[in-house]
Design a protein around this nucleic acid. Sequence first.
DNA 1: CTGGGCTCCTGCCCGC
DNA 2: TGCGGGCAGGAGCCCA
Length: 274
Amino acid sequence: MPELPEVETIVADLRPHLVGRTIVRCELRFPSIVRHPEPEVFIDSITGLTIEGVGRRGKFILIPLGEGRLLVVHLGMSGQLRLVDAATEIANHTHAILDLDDGRQLRYRDPRRFGRLLLGTEDELLTSGTLPRLGPEPIDPAFDAEQLFQRLRRRRASLKAVLLDQGTVAGVGNIYADESLHRARLRPDRLAKSLSRKSVRRLHESLRDSLEVAIRNRGSSVDTYRDAWGEIGNQQESLLVYGRAGEPCMTCGRPLSIVRIAGRSTVFCRRCQR
DNA sequence: CTGGGCTCCTGCCCGC
DNA sequence: TGCGGGCAGGAGCCCA
């Protein structure tokens, strides 16, 4: 599933191809994938606008289109944003097609339809609640361990639940929550507020390391994740715990445990993580 | 306010 | 071989 590293890979790949292109036509094959504004308004508004940038905030893809307008794409569980030649056969579950002025198409495909498209000014999307308030970017150099400590100390919930909360830190999902906690040698069910500054420093560094390594490896294709060209990533081959329940811990060899925390399957080592 | 649980949805895997 | 059930999960929403 696309988390920060997967979204970052897509965004970095698309940017040089999309900036400067004009959207000449928009087709919604499954209109309710657009959550704001009404689909007809979305089509009318987006047609003719020129792409000024391609960015990311947490797991959200942000595409400024001029006139203060922002196209927002969230991939949910199974969303794919692909740049293809217009002649390419249309895959099933393709819900939106943006025709560009260079003969290519930006297509949104999402079998499970947990993803969404939004269009509006940033203020409009924030005040309407369609774009949630997000915590800091974990890989931002300005985000330091002390900031993480201050955020964790106020939270009664488990570390796993807090890492998954996009309002605490933006962009971490089930894969990199488990990976970070393993690297930091912290149990996922530890209460966030119970961590010492020293432990939080370790978690801060582990978060950053897990995410940056995954970006270098172009993300994890453990399920349906594909990049903008339809290719898989490589990080799934190097994951320490995610998807490895029952297999030996890379550090101590003990079989990895799997439990359910915050409604998510959670894999960790009972010996290495305290 | 906070945290936990339910819901949406399809594909995949397992067992009969 | 085919089919049904269970499971996976991001995040909005509701409720205690």
